[in-house]
């Protein structure tokens, strides 16, 4: 499936899906909490329910994109966009 010349790209794609996917799911949860106004114990429970489903969907999408380069760019672009949005909405960890 992969030619020998692309192991680095493959590694980068796996990292984009795992680490990038984790960060993307994290910011999606943070934005969701911000928009719904849920906090405290309910916020932790809601995050637990939403995070893993969104992580799964992101990983599947990032592995379904046709090339490594596009998948890596997609992970970077979506993370940048959503973290920026979160920051300008007044987000704090």
């Amino acid at each position: 499936m992969f030619s020998l010349s692309e192991p680095w790209f493959l590694t980068a794609r796996i990292l984009a899906a795992t680490v990038g996917g984790y960060l993307l799911s994290m910011v999606i949860c943070l934005l969701l909490l911000m928009l719904t106004g849920v906090d405290g114990r309910d916020a932790r429970m809601l995050t637990g329910m939403v995070f893993f489903v969104s992580y799964l969907v992101i990983v599947v999408i990032l592995f379904s994109v046709s090339t490594h380069r596009r998948a890596i760019l997609l992970a970077l672009a979506s993370n940048s966009a959503l973290w920026t949005l979160w920051y300008f909405m007044g987000g704090q960890l």
Binding site: M26, C29, R41, A43, R44, T47, F51
Partner: peptide, 14 residues
Amino acid sequence: LFWQGGNERGGQQG
């Protein structure tokens, strides 16, 4: 999800 000011086993601590 350590970043959510977590607790063991999803909110049980509270």
